[in-house]
Write a protein that binds this DNA or RNA. Structure first.
Length: 331
DNA sequence: ACGATTTGACCATT
DNA sequence: AATGGTCAAATCGT
């Protein structure tokens, strides 16, 4: 849809702008902090560190930009049809989340399963309301409800993948209804409409971070609240863009993560065709303390990826879980 | 003191 | 009966 394209274009503009600013900053710092050859070792190392950081920033921005452009890959799926977004794996194809034996399907509304690398998070505020050991699963499943509004029906179940502990299997149930009536207090968000999907890894409940911040930071988000407002993405489950590990940002503590912006009141609900890109940012999903920390694999700019659904898709009445999902470069 | 998280118990579904 | 999902009191952190 056009909207999706405009969102991507908007994000792309911001990223390009960030790249320019970074380059300018680099130039300025180069003058202020004469690199290596500097007289004082201290100054030299500082300059080196700054340079390294700036390089990381520009590299991350490039990665995000690439991901955005690859975003064309989007796959619009009709509501009810689920998709598994595997973040990471360098496009080599992620592992699926096979339905566990004894796992039952709920019949309450739509749900979508997403498998993400840890350290990703979405822009919504989630409140954990339960945790349970699941038969056959090594890790417990955590239950979250939208914390923005009690009336919002959005829920998500987060479980660390048995197959790959570095991934979180997040199942979303129902779309957010909190976007409809009361837009969150506005802030300096840049991109309109955030709806990020995500997953997290760290032990903290996460928080949202502004995309910019996310892109710049490479530190693991353990118990770190994000400060700036997050920015991000459109509808979840449509497409996914994996940010480079360096894009991972510290998460905020559960309580106030995500200030989903506001001006983003227009967040589309699941199934809408609005968004094409997803920005995965560390999420609150794992307020639990046991989640592992891993890096999000980089997306290789090999060309427009294509989302492929594997044959063995398990269909439930209202829930669908796709077992295998891969991203392959278009030849 | 308030709000979020934890955790055991209860309920619903298969 | 077994299992997953939700509730709610207790606990913890701010």
């Amino acid at each position: 849809m056009a909207a999706a394209g405009s969102v991507g274009a908007t994000m792309e503009r911001f990223i390009v702008g960030a790249q320019k600013s970074t380059n300018q900053l680099k130039a300025v710092l180069a003058k202020l902090l004469p690199a290596a050859g500097g007289a004082r070792a201290g100054a030299g190392s500082s300059a080196g560190a700054v340079d390294a950081l700036l390089s990381d920033i520009t590299d991350s921005l490039s990665q995000v930009l690439t991901s955005l452009r690859l975003g064309a890959l989007n796959t619009q799926r009709p509501p009810g049809q689920s998709s598994i977004v595997v973040v990471g794996g360098g496009g080599s194809g992620g592992r699926s989340a096979p339905r566990r034996c004894g796992q039952r399907a709920r019949t309450d509304g739509e749900c979508r399963l997403i498998v993400l690398q840890n350290e990703v998070q979405d822009s919504y505020t989630w409140r954990k309301y339960g945790q349970k050991e699941i038969l056959g699963a090594r890790f417990p499943r955590s239950y979250f409800k939208c914390g923005r509004k009690p009336s919002c029906l959005a829920k998500k179940h987060v479980q660390q993948s048995d197959a790959d502990p570095s991934k979180l299997e997040i199942t979303y149930h129902n779309g957010h209804t909190c976007d409809d009536d009361s837009p969150p207090p506005s802030s300096s968000h840049i991109v309109p409409d955030p709806r990020i999907i995500s997953s997290g890894t760290q032990r903290n409940a996460a928080g949202l971070v502004p995309v910019a911040t996310a892109v710049l930071s490479s530190q693991p988000c353990i118990g770190q609240p994000p400060s700036p407002p997050l920015r991000s993405v459109p509808d979840m489950m449509t497409t996914g863009v994996a940010l480079p590990a360096s894009a991972v940002v510290p998460a905020a503590s559960s309580t106030q993560y995500d200030p989903v912006p506001d001006d983003t009141a227009s967040t589309p609900s699941i199934g809408e065709e609005e968004a094409e890109l997803l920005l995965f940012i560390p999420s609150p999903a794992c307020s639990q303390s046991e989640l592992l920390h891993t890096e999000v694999a980089k997306v290789e700019p090999l060309g427009p990826p294509v989302w492929m659904e594997h044959d063995d898709v398990a269909h439930d009445d209202a829930c669908v879980a796709i077992s295998d999902f891969m991203v392959v470069p278009e030849v």
